[in-house]
Design a protein around this nucleic acid. Structure first.
Lengths: 214, 214
DNA sequence: AGTAACTTGCACACCCATGTGCAAGTTACT
DNA sequence: AGTAACTTGCACATGGGTGTGCAAGTTACT
């Protein structure tokens, strides 16, 4: 008769846990700079050897998979905060939350484009996309959002517009307040609002302003 | 005394010229689908062997260089048609011309991002970018274009927005009329016009409508 | 202080893409 | 019909990234 051990294989040693986290963080940084970066580059950024990577992840894909998984969780958490009857406001809130998850979002987008991780990444982004699409549909019904472009197509353009702002933030320096304002302005602009309307909208909703602490 | 031969090395054989053109066309197609496609893939698309590529281009970079060169010429030609006192109209015209050069533009953008060709590609796109930037500055002075975003930053966002439409055209099918309308709407939206203004603008300028036959 | 966990460095095999040399075949041009 | 141009297929070298095995060193935990 054998004793059944707990399914938990073993409580990771502290330095190992740190290194694992460091690798993921390094991957997020390096891959944002160069989507084709080698494991060598990622390990170096984490201050580890390439060989060590294989102590934590079976292979490259598993590392990326983890990255996407973590990103998806952060986005889901951020998205959970968003709820508002006005679809335009909902889009603004989503945009604003995305700004806070800049690096995770961008890595996911970049990984989604290339390689075999695409299906999984798409899965992870599904709720976000559904949420955007829903807001756009509602807004089109109310004609606050341009009804001249099919909702699904407009949703993709909004996604690309948001990504453009995230990329812009890698080129030049954007502090949080500016970045948040910019991504909101760009998303609402894409969706059909004129710039004066956007300014009025932002002014009318001071609760949209950037708050630190979470 | 020696006879001086014309600087033209020799008049390319016809099939060779055809194949060279086929390779460039194949590269445009294949690289639009996958920016990292191998020479093998490009040659195959052209119906040639990988080895033949080296009969026309010294190396991979030279092929890409040629592609960018051709693209730049097409864009320059298209851009030359654009001149209008109203900066918004100017942007619309630029956008409209870009739609006609879809594949060339997209390949250039994709090549510009990665690899050592970036400086050359940037050079090639300079006049286009200058033109966009100029229109934006003029429009901001007149307050028809949103003045709340610095002109250079807005120019980059416009560029990304235009690319987003070109990408959208690779995902779903867009006929010329729709594509042109969409890229104009997106660019003008990014630049701050509301969707009703855009519709009015397009309606007021029937000369913007798609015309075949160049 | 001792043990297991973790990292390192090196060696190696593997894959894939690029670039070159060369002989043999096909094709355009005159 | 003959010649040079062009393409092909193969072999080979090179380079860079991935993934693995193993021995030796370091570090966390008890």
């Amino acid at each position: 008769m054998t004793l059944v051990t707990t399914p938990t294989p073993r409580p990771l040693r502290r330095d190992a846990a740190d290194n694992r986290a460091a690798l993921l963080a390094a991957a997020r940084v390096v891959l944002n700079r160069d989507p084709d970066a080698s494991l060598e580059a990622i390990a170096a950024q984490a201050g580890l050897s390439r060989r060590a990577v294989y102590g934590h992840f079976a292979n490259r894909d598993e590392l990326l998979h983890e990255l996407v998984h973590i990103g998806a969780e952060r986005v889901a958490t951020a998205l959970a905060r968003v709820a508002h009857p006005d679809p335009v406001m909902r889009l603004a809130l989503i945009a604003s939350q995305l700004w806070r998850e800049l690096e995770s979002i961008r890595v996911m987008a970049v990984i989604a484009l290339r390689g075999p991780l695409k299906p999984y990444t798409d899965d992870s982004l599904r709720p976000l996309r559904a949420s955007v699409l829903g807001a756009i549909r509602d807004g089109q019904r109310a004609e606050t959002i341009r009804p001249d472009i099919p909702a699904d197509r407009l949703a993709r353009l909004v996604e690309d517009a948001a990504l453009a702002v995230l990329e812009e933030s890698m080129r030049s320096v954007l502090d949080n307040a500016d970045g948040q304002r910019l991504i909101i302005a760009t998303v609402l602009g894409t969706v059909g609002l004129g710039w004066r309307d956007v300014e009025a909208f932002i002014a009318a909703h001071p609760d949209l302003a950037w708050k630190d602490h979470d």
